[in-house]
Design a protein around this nucleic acid. Structure first.
Lengths: 198, 198
DNA sequence: TCCATATTTTGCACTCAGTGCAAAATAATA
DNA sequence: TATTATTTTGCACTGAGTGCAAAATATGGA
């Protein structure tokens, strides 16, 4: 503990490079085996072997088998909260959220997302944990909204947060079941438009 | 398979009575031990012993340890959907949902709910699965809304479903962290009122 | 280059959840 | 009571995940 200056830095010694590499190899091994045999039928022994490490070492990189998939989830809440920083002055929360979501969508890589989503569907536990992360995303968005619109009614901001995450969720769902024909952004707009007629 | 007329009936022979009793004993044993030692520290062996059955028999009653707690969850989606049948003619979906939630709330037993909720908090897996059930509730409410308001824009009904479940969630949260001082129904009203100012 | 130290990897032994199978115990029925 | 259906149990097994301590490897300085 004499070494390592209170973290923060991203050192680039052999150690860190190897660590990142091992992490990547485990992820790749997991994805490869999951898609080949399914999540449940893939044992940690198989993943460790494929990644060229011991079973025990796996747990120094991931807390559980689930986490291989879950760690690939993009931090929706964080991203949305960050994108809110670009709001226009005087803009209403909902309008700002709509704009923030469009900004995010531009950065998405559709095909990988679809494939990952399908993999997650194959394990009940993973699926549950994934859905639970939506609530955390919602909390992050709510916090950001409170910070940026301190004069608004918190209850209304809470609802705005619920809606933004909910719209993301159902838009992705609609987009996925339409196999990505229409662009994701259009579904998002449909839902935001529907908000007026509620 | 010559017996049992395609289920539906709730026979009351010795077999069924014993079965129900065992189920109840397992639940009670689980709750007792969970609150005494915590969820994770309670083994299935301990639960089986406390309930007076063998470990193997446990799995004829529950699919997993989690399910002891999860099976106690009230079917929010089903109840809400059912309560929507009482809607007034010409009433808007949101107004009907608000009314339906009030009808439900009247039937709730606060203290048990609070205790159960706290137990669920103690296991990550249980918590995730519980939160995942919200999405199923949402789907049920959405289906009911579509059935009752076929002329409305489905996207708007989807948002209404999202909001109704979301409001339930955050109301319970606020109520729980306020330790049940204000009645749950007031939180619900606060959120529905806030809807106007979004 | 070699040494002392910090970190990572590994093996081993263990606990516990959950499953498949077949035999034993118990209830229903005739 | 005898036959049949259902439930309970024991046993042996797989696989996830953990604690511990020793072995292997990287780092930084002399």
């Amino acid at each position: 503990m004499t070494n390592r200056k209170n973290s923060e830095r991203e050192p680039d010694g052999l150690r860190e490079r190897k660590r990142r590499d091992t992490h990547r190899r485990i992820t790749e091994a997991g994805l490869k085996l999951f898609s080949a045999r399914g999540f449940d039928a893939t044992t940690l022994d198989a993943i460790a072997a494929e990644a060229g490490i011991s079973r025990r070492t796996f747990f120094h990189y991931f807390r559980s088998k689930d986490d291989i998939l879950l760690s690939l989830q993009t931090g929706l809440g964080e991203s949305l909260a960050a994108a809110l920083a670009e709001r226009a002055p005087g803009q209403r929360p909902i309008a700002a959220l709509r704009q923030a979501m469009h900004a995010l969508l531009a950065a998405y890589a559709p095909d990988e997302l679809l494939a990952l989503d399908r993999l997650m569907l194959s394990s009940e536990a993973v699926q549950s944990r994934k859905q639970a992360t939506y609530l955390q995303d919602e909390a992050l968005v709510f916090a950001a909204l409170c910070a940026y619109w301190p004069e608004e009614n918190p209850a209304a901001l809470r609802l705005a947060a619920i809606l933004s995450i909910g719209i993301t969720r159902v838009s992705m769902e609609a987009w996925r079941s339409g196999d990505g024909q229409r662009p994701l952004a259009q579904y998002v707009d449909d839902y935001f438009d529907a908000l007026a007629g509620i």
